[in-house]
């Protein structure tokens, strides 16, 4: 394999995917006319692409996908958080009822909830500082819950993020 071959092999995927232009395209196509090794490599790329596509298409074709709509419609017909909102405290209590080891630990250090409730605009992650630590994240039907510990103060903070509305609520607690 020549240096030219090595260069071509790096570009061969892009050539196969029809993503090369101009000089790169010409370099590869000219080389393929004279190099059986690289032409063979291209064949192998093509075979693999065909196998992968065929396999996953066959899988999807075999699956009974009518269940997708029945599951989706059942989920969207149940009132989302934005329309029958549960009190926040109940939602928090539900988190701790989940059989998640990390939440159990958080429960053990007795997070005292409902100190402050603040609506924050924009990206909820943007207020995370570098030494903050996400203890756990749980996604329920309508919400994501995230428990993290603020590095500086060791304060545990629970985020409740509505999937539907994108609203974020911050729930601050202190450890005992």
């Amino acid at each position: 394999m020549t240096i030219r071959c090595e260069k071509v092999r790096e570009l061969l995927g892009g050539f196969h995917d029809n993503e090369l232009q101009g000089r790169e395209f010409r370099t590869v196509s000219e080389h393929l006319k004279v190099c059986a090794g690289c032409a063979g490599e291209l064949k192998r790329l093509e075979t693999m692409s065909r196998l992968l596509k065929a396999h996953y298409e066959e899988l999807a074709g075999k699956e009974d996908l009518s269940q997708v709509w029945s599951r989706v419609s059942a989920a969207i017909e149940t009132p989302g958080v934005s329309d029958g909102r549960e009190p926040l405290l109940e939602r928090i209590m539900k988190i701790f009822a989940l059989p998640k080891p990390a939440w159990a630990i958080a429960g053990a250090v007795a997070v005292v909830v409902v100190l402050m409730l603040a609506s924050l605009p924009g990206d909820h992650m943007s207020t995370l500082a570098a030494n903050d630590c996400i203890i756990d994240k749980v996604d329920s039907e309508n919400c994501s819950f995230m428990l993290y510990e603020a590095g500086a103060t060791k304060m545990k903070i629970i985020w409740v993020i509505d999937q539907g509305s994108g609203e974020t609520e911050q729930q601050t607690g202190v450890t005992s």
Binding site: V68, R71, V72, A75, I76, Q163, G164, S165
Partner: peptide, 15 residues
């Protein structure tokens, strides 16, 4: 795969 497809459509609908 089915769960994540369902979840994706529900999220898409809600947002």
């Amino acid at each position: 795969a089915l769960d994540s497809v369902q979840e994706a459509f529900v999220k898409a609908y809600r947002s």
